[in-house]
Design a protein around this nucleic acid. Sequence first.
DNA 1: CTGGTTTATGGCACTGAGTGCCAGTTGTAG
DNA 2: CTACAACTGGCACTCAGTGCCATAAACCAG
Lengths: 207, 207
Amino acid sequence: MTHQAHRLPVPPGRRRITSRAELEQVAFDLFDRNGFEHTTVDDIASAAGIGRRTFFRYFASKNEVPWGDFDAELARMRRQLAATPPAAPLMDAIRQAIVDFNAMPAEQWPAHRRRMTFILGVPALQAHSTLRFAAWRQVIADFAAQRTGQRPDALLPRTIAHAMLGVAVAGYEQWLTSPGDDLCELLDSAIRALGSAFTSAGTSSGE
Amino acid sequence: MTHQAHRLPVPPGRRRITSRAELEQVAFDLFDRNGFEHTTVDDIASAAGIGRRTFFRYFASKNEVPWGDFDAELARMRRQLAATPPAAPLMDAIRQAIVDFNAMPAEQWPAHRRRMTFILGVPALQAHSTLRFAAWRQVIADFAAQRTGQRPDALLPRTIAHAMLGVAVAGYEQWLTSPGDDLCELLDSAIRALGSAFTSAGTSSGE
DNA sequence: CTGGTTTATGGCACTGAGTGCCAGTTGTAG
DNA sequence: CTACAACTGGCACTCAGTGCCATAAACCAG
C-alpha cells in the first residue's frame, strides 16, 4: 500500500549503475589532469568503477563526452526561434536567438568555458564537433527556410546556417582566449560586424 | 656524358617507389567500389603493391588521401588575394578570390566533384576536414586582418574567415547535389545572398 | 669495385578506439 | 518461483596509427 507516487511508471529491468553526467565529471577530472588524448577509455571506466564496455553504452565515443545533453540544448534553441515575432527581420531574429541561446547564469560560465575549451581546442574534438554542429545548422536552416519560403536544403537557408555557425564559433574562440569578455556580447557584435563588413567600404573597421 | 639536365639536384638515397597521386588513384578506385569506411589501409597498400607501413609515409592518415596537394592550392588562393587591387571593398575581394580559387577547366569537374563528395559526404572525412579548413580560414583571416588593420586573431578577421568558409561549404554542398549547376556561380550567389540577407527586410527571398 | 652515407621500404609488435557476442546480474510483474 | 526486461562487463576481434629496426637502393669518394 505504498500509494505509488503518481507519474512514476518505474520501468522494468536492472537500474543504470551511473549516469552520463557522473561519467562526464570523472572524465573531465582526468582530462584536466592528463589531457584528453592521454586519457584512455580504460582510464575513465576504471576511475568511474565501471567496465570499459559499459562506458560505450553511455557514450557512443570518447569524443561525445564533452557534449553533455546537446540535443536538449538544440531543442531549446528551436523553441526560441519559434517564439520569435514574425515581423522581426530574419537575421535579427537569428542573431537574437543565438545570443539568447548562449546566455546563462554567471556561475555556469567556468564549467561552460571548460567544456568549450575542450571541444574547440583539442584537435580530435574540434574535428568531431563538425558532426554535432550539423544538427545546430539544421535548426537555423529550418528557421531560415520557413521564413523565406524555401526548402531547408536550398542554397540560402543552408548558406545562412553555415555562416551563422562560423560566426558563432569565431565568437566562442574569441571568448575562450579573452577571460574578461562577455560571451553574449561577443556573439552579438560578431554577427553585427559580419553584416557591416558586407555593406561598409573596403578598409573600414567593423567594430 | 648524359649532360645531366640542369636544375635536377638528384638527391642521394633510395628513390621513392610510388607517389601520393598514384596512391590516391588506387585508393579512390577502392573507395568507389567498396566505400571509404569499408576500405582498410591494408586494402590500399596491397592494391598499390606497397607495405602498410609505407602507406603512412605518404599519408599521415587515411583521412588525408582525398586532399591532394591542398597546401599548394591554399598558396594559390593566398596569391590571388594578394593580387587584389587595394581599392576593392573587402568582401568583394574575398568573394572574387573564392570564386577564382574554385575555377577550373571543365574536364577537371568530375574528378573534383568526386573528391569533394568524399570530403563533404563521408562523416569521418567531414570531421577531418575541419582540421584542413583551419588553414583555409587562416588565409582569409590574414587578408581581412591586413585590410582592416587588425591582428589575424582579432574578432572581425576570424569571424569573416569562419563565415566565408561556411558559405563556401554551403555552396559546395549545393553543387554536389545538383549536377547541372556551375560551382563558381553557386559560390558567387551564396556570398551575395548572405550579404543581402543582412540588409533586406525579414521575409524577403535572397535569390 | 668497395666502403660509407643517405633515404626509402616494410615487417613486427604495440596501443587504443570501437564492436559483436553472450553469459550473468538486477530489477519488475504475475 | 517463474517469466521477462534491461543493464553489466568480460572476451575476442577489427582497424588506425606509431616506434623500432633491419634491409634495400641509390649516391659519392677513393
